[in-house]
Design a protein around this nucleic acid. Structure first.
Lengths: 272, 272
DNA sequence: CCTATAGATGAGATAAATTCATCTATTTGG
DNA sequence: CCAAATAGATGAATTTATCTCATCTATAGG
């Protein structure tokens, strides 16, 4: 709203009331005594409306949180830890939806979301959860009886597993590691990280995955890192929700938990 | 504002709040518990705004009352009594304007008015001041050396004085008193009651006047009633002012005085 | 079973609010 | 002392919000 709009509105209000609310003093304005009194009264009333609106919107007993989550993050990070959150907040009910797209909150029932992206959402609150570093992973079975992989170039001897709409990831990683001319390599494409990881675990090839999201498979030896290189995607997972929207206590509980959990993991990783 | 507009606004508010305020029960709506709570809080706040606005608008020290008054009423009833009002409310300044038309307050600086009419003004507050009964009046000089006036028909032997735009008054009076065929009688027309009364006092003819407005002239013998008949015009003088507009203390003082004065006069008349 | 009615919806019209361009008068800095 | 910057105001144009109108669905009443 511009100063011009404010000036128009003040003029209209003074005309409507038949009372001068401001005294014009050269290039300044000052409230008149009636203006002071009116301000106090109206401010109080508007504060009450604001308070009542906040109370009504933040329904205290709304224990449901609707979450739209990037699928890889959902299945590989969140779901395994959900029990920890529930044990801390037993009365909160998370309603989880996997979605690869970045929903538009205006046309959605979702309360919060986990986006994978660059964090450029001016209309949203967003909290960094974790940066994404992609590393090549494959089944140990893939390498049995095969020459060891010692360089990025050696990766090309195998099937590269891509994820739809993220074709550039492999190319970026290879280029960063000295492989400049990449011919049409043998490959296959899946529509999601989960599917790609599943295929990799079956020994169908090598895919790229965020180390943190594949850590359980890596721990159990279902997947291994055949080469110690990684790609900084310049993208991250973020917790996002609408600006200007009061959070229920359940939403706050979830936000606080997930940020704290990420910090705890971050500390653990730094100690290793 | 139509039900349709209300429905739209309720829908928008519920969407904005993310809370259902009304429960739709077939063809009825009922407030939900959150709706009840919100209503109480918002109603209270809006009442405060309304109160603050009323207080700010009713500037306590505005001692001026602008009045637009039907001319006959002004000159013949109000002006003679103005001193009484001033003695009771010495700090109130009445600014009086004579106007035969019924002003439109939206386009006028007037605070209050005295209208002559039928009292059908739905957008205004109106208080009955007095009913208007017209009686024929003339100067005693007119009748000197002439046959006495014993019936309505005898009135036709004299010049009838009309007031512009109120031509039907004479005709109505005569018809009500048995004079059915009225030829084009000799007459003259003036633009106001005051002028007509002035002409009657000069012996130019007989005019119709409200008994109360001509009472001083009748008292002093400047005018007499040549025949004891009267016309109920179905119109009255009313004090009027805008609905929804807070009255200053001066306006209230004037309203209370004039209504009280009229009641006092009414009692006096009834005692006679 | 038909008519009337409450509430809701979408489109168009109207009203209100805001922005933009410009002005005047004052303040500030060189 | 003068030029540039700035606060507040104004009018016109644009944008947004609100309201009305037409219509619909489902229910109630005669």
């Amino acid at each position: 709203m511009t100063p011009s709009a404010v000036s128009h509105q003040i003029k209209a209000l003074e005309s409507f009331l038949g009372v001068q609310l401001f005294e014009r003093i050269k290039r300044r304005v000052a409230l008149t005594p009636p203006g002071e009194r009116y301000l106090l009264a109206i401010q109080s009333a508007l504060d009450e409306i604001d308070e009542a609106t906040k109370k009504i919107v933040t329904v205290p007993n709304s224990n449901i949180v609707n979450l739209s989550v990037a699928p890889a993050f959902l299945t590989r990070w969140l779901v395994p830890r959900i029990n920890h959150f529930q044990s801390l907040s037993p009365d909160v009910e998370l309603r989880l939806t996997a979605s690869m797209s970045q929903i538009d909150f205006r046309y959605s029932d979702m309360d919060m979301a986990v986006f994978y992206g660059d964090g450029n959402w001016p209309d949203l609150h967003y909290h960094l959860l974790r940066n994404v570093h992609l590393v090549p992973v494959c089944s140990p079975k893939l390498l049995e009886g095969k020459p060891p992989i010692k360089s990025a170039e050696d990766l090309l001897q195998h099937t590269l597993i891509h994820i739809s709409k993220r074709d550039t990831e492999w190319q970026s990683l290879l280029e960063q590691n000295g492989v400049n001319e990449i011919e049409n390599t043998r490959g296959m494409t899946f529509s999601s990280t989960s599917l790609a990881l599943g295929a990799a675990m079956e020994g169908l090839g090598i895919t790229l995955a965020d180390r943190g999201l594949a850590e359980r498979e890596l721990e159990y030896g279902q997947l291994i890192c055949p080469l110690d290189i990684s790609l900084d995607t310049q993208k991250s997972f973020y917790l996002v929700y609408q600006k200007g929207r009061p959070l229920t206590e359940s939403m706050q509980a979830f936000r606080d938990w997930i940020l704290d959990e990420m910090q705890t993991e971050q500390r653990s990783l730094q100690q290793l």
